[in-house]
Design a protein around this nucleic acid. Sequence first.
DNA 1: ATATTGACATTTA
DNA 2: ATAAATGCCAATA
Length: 105
Amino acid sequence: MKIDDLKEDVYRIVKKIPKGKVMTYGQIASLLRLPNYHRIVAKILSLNRSEKVPCHRVIESSGKLGGYSISGDKKEKAKKLLKDGLKFEKKTLIVDLQKYLFKRF
DNA sequence: ATATTGACATTTA
DNA sequence: ATAAATGCCAATA
């Protein structure tokens, strides 16, 4: 299973996301030199469901939160992000990527 | 083995 | 600008 191998890399990257920043699925995939694996990244995170990784800092490129399997409630994810210091409309749950996107380069 | 699905992204209309 | 269509890979049924 490649996913099992990618899992480590994904976690590694996600863990490196500084507090107050977020990354997108496609971005992570690109960092792994696998630009088309965004879906796989998402699947990995869905399978993950462990809180050892700040997976709540991974959102969609559109700025929407995406999903959250741990509690199944996106509000939980939003709360964590707010706790990280991010500020966004609680109604739309749209994150300002211009501000909070973590770019390594 | 084929078909559907997924915490999506990018392109086209 | 928004919305639909297309693409992508692996897992699951």
